[in-house]
C-alpha cells in the first residue's frame, strides 16, 4: 500500500457501464500528466477487463464490478474485480486468440491487448470465486 492517491468505483455489470468505467479511469489517470497514447492504453486495458467481467464473469446473473485505481508517483496500479464464474485454466484463457465464446464473435484478444498496453497483467481466479485482474503501468509522459 502507501499510495499517493487511490479510488474505487463499484457498478452494475451491464454493458452500458463499459464507457463509464473508461471515463472514470481516464479522469483519475489524467492528473498525472500522461500522454494521450498512455491514457488510451489504460482506457483500452480497463475496457477489456471490464467487458470480460460483464460477458464472461457474469454470463448467467448480473453482478457488481469493482474497479480500483491507485497511483504512487507515476506508477499506476489497477484492479478489476468480479464475483462471477471464475476461470479454471488461467494460462489457457490468456493465450492469444483463445475464446470460450466464438459464437458471440469474441476474438480472444482481450488479455493480449491488456498485456500489450500495460507493463504487467496478472490474473487471480478460481471457478465459482470470481476473477481479479491486476494491471500496472509506469507513466513515462
Amino acid at each position: 500500500m502507501g499510495y499517493d492517491n487511490e479510488m474505487t468505483t463499484i457498478f452494475t455489470g451491464i454493458s452500458e457501464n463499459e464507457a463509464f468505467a473508461r471515463t472514470v479511469i481516464a479522469a483519475f489517470v489524467s492528473r498525472f500528466n500522461p500522454t494521450v497514447a498512455e491514457i488510451t492504453d489504460v482506457k483500452t486495458a480497463v475496457s477489456e477487463a471490464v467487458t470480460n467481467a460483464i460477458i464472461h464473469g457474469y454470463c448467467k446473473d448480473t453482478g457488481m464490478v469493482e474497479v480500483m485505481c491507485a497511483a504512487k508517483n507515476r506508477d499506476i496500479y489497477i484492479e478489476v474485480k468480479d464475483k462471477g464464474v471464475g476461470i479454471a485454466d488461467i494460462d489457457k484463457a490468456m493465450t492469444p486468440l483463445f475464446t470460450s465464446k466464438p459464437d458471440m464473435e469474441r476474438s480472444g484478444m482481450g488479455f493480449t491487448v491488456m498485456e500489450a498496453f500495460m507493463d504487467s497483467v496478472t490474473v487471480e481466479s478460481a471457478p465459482g470465486c470470481g476473477t481479479t485482474v491486476v494491471m500496472k503501468k509506469r507513466l513515462l509522459g
Binding site: R22, K43, S47, E48, S107
Partner: peptide, 13 residues
C-alpha cells in the same frame, strides 16, 4: 476515438 477487441470481433465476424 476508441476501440477495443470488440472492433476486431466486428470485422472478423
Amino acid at each position: 476515438n476508441f476501440m477495443d477487441s470488440s472492433g476486431v470481433g466486428l470485422v472478423l465476424g
